[in-house]
């Protein structure tokens, strides 16, 4: 006989707790104020505007380094999320471990290339990443950031990551 499906609130609680542990445990993500929206397995990075993110006070414009960092954070979290998804779903990753800050090793950035397409305006920004190749040792990720209009991205990046060894 088939197992009855899990109650939706149990599924949501487990996924949200995993995401919260993944994002909340990194001081730099908190420093920039980045949050993540989750719809099923799809993540959207959110960078709420703050004065300290400004790089050119005359325009004013968001600092190019902040834009790169936002894309990099979105890429790493999205890649980690995809990598951990099965273990979160199967229960192999214990909710209690995640909540106590016991995170698995995360991917390491090998290289990171940012294209600045438009000026980052002094308002909220959003980003999504797509894992274009996920291998045992290396992964390729592409990410794009936009503000008011999703069809007019203000920056994009492509990056390579070294995956954590699955035995340790």
């Amino acid at each position: 006989m088939r197992r009855p499906p899990e109650p939706v609130q149990v599924v949501k609680q487990r996924r949200d707790a995993a995401l919260h542990a993944l994002v909340g445990g990194v001081p730099y993500i908190q420093f920039l104020g980045i949050r993540f929206d989750r719809r099923g397995d799809e993540l959207t990075g959110l960078l709420p505007y703050d004065d300290k993110l400004i790089g050119n006070p005359l325009l004013p414009a968001i600092h190019g380094g902040v834009t790169a960092a936002f894309l990099e954070v979105t890429a790493i979290i999205t890649l980690s999320w995809a990598w951990l998804w099965e273990d979160i779903e199967s229960g192999k990753l214990k909710l209690s471990d995640l909540e106590s800050g016991q995170l698995p090793r995360l991917p390491k950035t090998i290289d990171f290339s940012t294209d600045y397409l438009r000026t980052g305006l002094p308002r909220d920004a959003y980003a999504r990443a797509r894992v274009t190749r996920s291998g045992r040792r290396y992964a390729s990720v592409h990410a794009q950031a936009w503000q008011d209009n999703h069809d007019r991205p203000f920056a994009e990046c492509s990056a390579h990551f070294l995956m954590p060894r699955s035995d340790g």
């Binding site: 445990g25 990194v26 730099y28 993500i29 600092h63 380094g65 902040v66 960092a69 990099e72 950035t109």
Partner: peptide
């Protein structure tokens, strides 16, 4: 600016901002 709480290593994003 830490990116890896286990080791205390600075996040690559902060290095990007410095380089930029």
């Amino acid at each position: 600016l830490i990116g890896d709480p286990d080791t205390g290593v600075i996040h690559g994003g902060a290095v990007s901002a410095l380089m930029d």
